[in-house]
Nucleic acid binder design. Structure first.
Lengths: 121, 121
DNA sequence: TTTGATACGGCTGAATTTAGCCGTACTTGA
DNA sequence: TCAAGTACGGCTAAATTCAGCCGTATCAAA
């Protein structure tokens, strides 16, 4: 894994939140796990646009940040599940309120946020 | 400015929020401007760890995302101020609730979030 | 025996953000 | 005239994240 070289900014609580949520698919992962989709293969099928590799990476970051817990069943074929930790559960209402803000202002925002011009690709 | 080449994920409201808040110093900038520190030079002095260059860049992103507004006074020497737009104001309570979450769990999080090892630098 | 499902990890290069250098122009005050 | 303050922008390299390739292993069913 990549080892950070620059200091992380943690003075403010919002930075802590951002540090945890930062990662293209983490939000989707947390939401899926919260809704009971908790096995790696299932998650991969739910989020097909992300590569398996990257989902694995982000899952393990969430584990190391204490948001989700990983359980490995000692059986053949192997089985793995993820669950929200108590800390992860406290995140749900915050995510909901933040998502509500986004939805509320979706119209304004979509026009303002720069999207890559499909003609250039 | 850099032109995005990969599509932006905007399905979920939280992604909209992240898209706007994403940038190392944007949170600090919004918070300063909200508290009346609204001239480029002042902001620079309040956030000395960030380069002037980067603050400029992130300020202009916030402007283009409609969160803050820039006013240029036509005088010599030039004078510029930033203010929160109505959309930017709606962000404040969301930021507060998110920051509250971070503060509440600061102890747990600080131990879990990977910090660069000072011995390696 | 081959195929498909389970799960995991190394590696490379593209895309993107951040850091930090340089220089422009104007005005006021020492 | 010279320094210091105002604001702005080009450019390069470092740091970081993302995309996608390859390969490992086990087991069940076709």
């Amino acid at each position: 894994m990549y080892q950070k070289k620059l200091p992380v900014e943690l003075e403010c609580g919002l930075h802590l939140f951002m540090e945890v949520m930062n990662g293209k698919w983490k939000i989707s992962l947390i939401w899926c796990i919260y809704n009971g989709i908790n096995r790696p293969g299932e998650l991969q099928r739910r989020i097909p646009k992300a590569s398996r590799r990257l989902l694995d990476t982000q899952l393990s970051q969430l584990v190391s940040h204490g948001i989700i817990a990983k359980t490995v069943f000692d059986q053949k074929p192997p089985k793995v599940t993820y669950e929200l930790t108590p800390l992860g559960q406290t995140l749900i209402p915050v995510i909901e309120s933040t998502a509500r803000w986004g939805e509320m202002h979706r119209n304004e925002l979509e026009q303002l946020i720069q999207t890559p011009d499909p003609l250039l690709r």
